[in-house]
Amino acid sequence: MSRVIVITSGKGGVGKTTSTANLGMALAKRGRRVAVVDADFGLRNLDLLLGLENRVIYTAAEALAGECRLEQALVKDKRQPNLVLLPAAQNRTKDSITPDQMKKLMGVLATKFDYVFIDSPAGIEMGFRNAIAAATEAIVVTTPEIAAVRDADRVVGLLEAHTVHNTHLLINRLRPLMVAANDMMSVEDVQEILAIPLLGVIPDDERVIVSTNRGEPLVLSETPSIAGIAYDNVVRRLEGETVELLDFSVNSDSWVGRIKKFFGSK
């Protein structure tokens, strides 16, 4: 059975696209057949984070219009043959596609891949409704900040109303030192407020920006990063493993130690 998972948030810029790219890539590395779908019509980004922007020829829009076959629109990743990207159209608006069309398209992908990840646009309008239409699971991304958590709560309610019942929380850009100084909500604080099961925590990490510069998701990098390890852990949980949360409650020096330990220190 393939899993169709929407990655959504309400608030913009909290890390949906970053998470889609890393989760998709990490699962592909584990041998799963993965399709990542950019549902941010008009503002596509996922191709950039995956470094596939120069290979986009057709998009979901042409596939839907019957101007190409769906397979022709899928961009294969040379680094990781298990991963394909279905790009969003850049020159059309969010209203040029309907939830029913989205369902049809995702239905076809679901027959060919183990995982279909849908990168939702920000907001709760048409683009959001298209993105969730075909999903049977959702990952709600939030940062530990007031506006992001409020919007996440709204989205959790909307997902429920649209009968997406399997919803998990991914907390991004946690800053352990700020939590320790009581200047940021902790993982427990956010989880208590949103009251949905926690899938994982990704720390704030400069390496995320470096990886976007290169178009190479962190989980592909030779040099391990704390955010990359956190994404790997999320994927293991998605696959049913029980993996404890990384312990961020220490200074960054010992992160390095832990990363080294994780990779059998070179």
Partner: peptide, 11 residues
């Protein structure tokens, strides 16, 4: 703390 405050406001 600002952490207490934000939790209260959110609730």
């Amino acid at each position: 703390t600002s952490r207490d405050e934000v939790k209260l406001r959110l609730q």
